[in-house]
Amino acid sequence: MLMYGIITFDDVTNYGTVLQLYGLTRVLRRHFGIEARALGYEENHDFAPQEGSDAGGISIDRPEEWLWRGDRFLFAQRKRTVLRRFVRDRGLRGGRLADYRNLEGVLIGSDEVFTLHAGITPARWGFGVPSDRVSTYAASFGSTTLSDIADRHCLPMVRAALSAMDHISVRDANSANIVEELTGKRPIRTLDPVLLDGFDAERQIAPPPPARPYLLVYGYDYRREDPVILRQIETYASREGLEIVSVGFYHPWANRNLALEPETLIGYFAHATGVVTNTFHGTVLGLLAGVPITVFPTDFNRIKVTGLLEDFGLTGCLGEGAPLLSFSPDYEAVRQQLEEQRRLSLDYLAEVVQR
């Protein structure tokens, strides 16, 4: 098998990050016979508000998470253990950059590998990676804008890095606009690896009995961010006779808080009565599940979350100003669009990996 390196976020306690890496490695193996691993590298935090902070919200694995006490602290420990074991058992992580010399190729992405909120990390721009063949897959600038790049005096570096890459694909319109502005070429947009893989078998994994009908919540602390949203969740669940199940995040008001294996988490989405989320990959998993979903974007992820919903004609899923789970998505249209975009995404990968 060919050996590719992947530059992404490989060591964070975040289900979406782990699943997008898992999905990309599975697609590369299944369709192209390529064995790929995430490569370890040092992350730069020169632009972060304080030393050691992450890239402005990409991961919930932050220092303050470990200051939580009691149940929250124990939940965070369980989640970290579950995700690290999953990454290890699936062989998703390889060695560090220095452990390799001449890989067949390197893919940068998916996820917000081009965000500048924390700093400039050379490996995410293709510098110092162990291959002369460097491309991206579904890379994203996240909430970083062209003005942000200019304000950080990074335009020459970003332009040079993008221009030197063999192939570029991005995940969202904001990223496509930035790449086109800096290189003069419009990049192809490809699916997030979770949508690309589809995880069909995992969606059949049902919660263990006895399973009451439940409202699945996947998101950051609603009580801290917006108590109005919390009241909507509690009122809806009470009215419909639903248990509130929070997966991946601890909320003291949920009936159950579960730190699940990533594959089991996908099944919980698929068997929920409805999904409430404020994250990008929570939205992705809700779309794959084909269940009613309400999305409350945060200030940090608004660009990518609303962009995803716009791509599939599902802005009615946005919860701001609308009753919870009041929109009925046309999931047959979503399925057809996904099939077409999967074909285009696989065609792109085929072009990248051809010798």
Results as ranks from 00 to 15, higher is better:
residue 46 D to P: 02
residue 83 L to C: 06
residue 317 C to K: 01
residue 85 R to I: 00
residue 95 G to K: 09
residue 283 T to M: 08
residue 290 G to M: 12
residue 238 S to L: 11
residue 315 T to R: 14
residue 32 F to K: 04
residue 12 V to F: 12
residue 304 K to T: 11
residue 150 A to K: 10
residue 142 G to D: 08
residue 76 A to C: 00
residue 287 L to W: 07
residue 71 D to H: 10
residue 245 V to M: 00
residue 96 R to Y: 09
residue 22 Y to W: 12
residue 88 R to E: 15
residue 146 L to V: 06
residue 123 A to R: 04
residue 28 L to S: 05
residue 264 T to R: 14
residue 160 A to D: 13
residue 251 H to C: 06
residue 24 L to C: 06
residue 317 C to M: 02
residue 325 L to I: 02
residue 334 V to N: 03
residue 14 N to F: 03
residue 292 P to K: 13
residue 295 V to G: 09
residue 41 Y to S: 02
residue 62 R to H: 03
residue 111 D to Y: 08
residue 196 L to R: 11
residue 311 D to Q: 15
residue 121 T to H: 01
residue 110 S to V: 08
residue 195 L to D: 03
residue 296 F to M: 05
residue 145 T to F: 06
residue 318 L to M: 09
residue 223 R to F: 11
residue 265 L to G: 03
residue 41 Y to K: 02
residue 108 I to V: 11
residue 69 R to Q: 14
residue 333 A to G: 00
residue 74 L to H: 12
residue 222 Y to S: 07
residue 230 L to F: 00
residue 246 S to T: 04
residue 55 A to G: 07
residue 129 V to R: 09
residue 295 V to S: 10
residue 173 A to E: 15
residue 135 S to Q: 07
residue 139 A to I: 11
residue 255 N to Q: 03
residue 62 R to V: 14
residue 10 D to L: 08
residue 332 E to D: 13
residue 332 E to L: 10
residue 297 P to V: 12
residue 147 S to G: 10
residue 336 Q to R: 15
residue 48 A to P: 02
residue 123 A to N: 03
residue 200 D to S: 04
residue 59 S to F: 02
residue 163 S to D: 10
residue 350 A to Q: 13
residue 74 L to A: 13
residue 320 E to K: 04
residue 81 T to H: 13
residue 151 D to G: 01
residue 11 D to S: 14
residue 268 Y to E: 01
residue 95 G to W: 06
residue 18 V to M: 04
residue 53 S to Y: 12
residue 31 H to W: 13
residue 141 F to P: 11
residue 342 R to H: 09
residue 87 V to N: 06
residue 142 G to M: 10
residue 300 F to W: 06
residue 164 A to M: 09
residue 289 A to D: 11
residue 309 L to Q: 11
residue 191 L to I: 06
residue 304 K to D: 04
residue 7 I to D: 09
residue 96 R to H: 13
residue 336 Q to F: 02
residue 109 G to A: 11
residue 172 D to E: 09
residue 4 Y to F: 15
residue 81 T to K: 14
residue 284 V to T: 12
residue 138 A to Q: 01
residue 113 V to K: 08
residue 187 P to V: 03
residue 335 R to V: 05
residue 300 F to L: 08
residue 93 R to V: 14
residue 115 T to C: 08
residue 132 D to W: 06
residue 7 I to N: 09
residue 121 T to N: 04
residue 342 R to F: 07
residue 82 V to L: 06
residue 146 L to K: 07
residue 324 L to H: 12
residue 346 L to K: 05
residue 103 L to R: 10
residue 178 I to F: 04
residue 26 R to P: 00
residue 57 G to S: 02
residue 337 Q to A: 14
residue 317 C to F: 04
residue 247 V to Q: 00
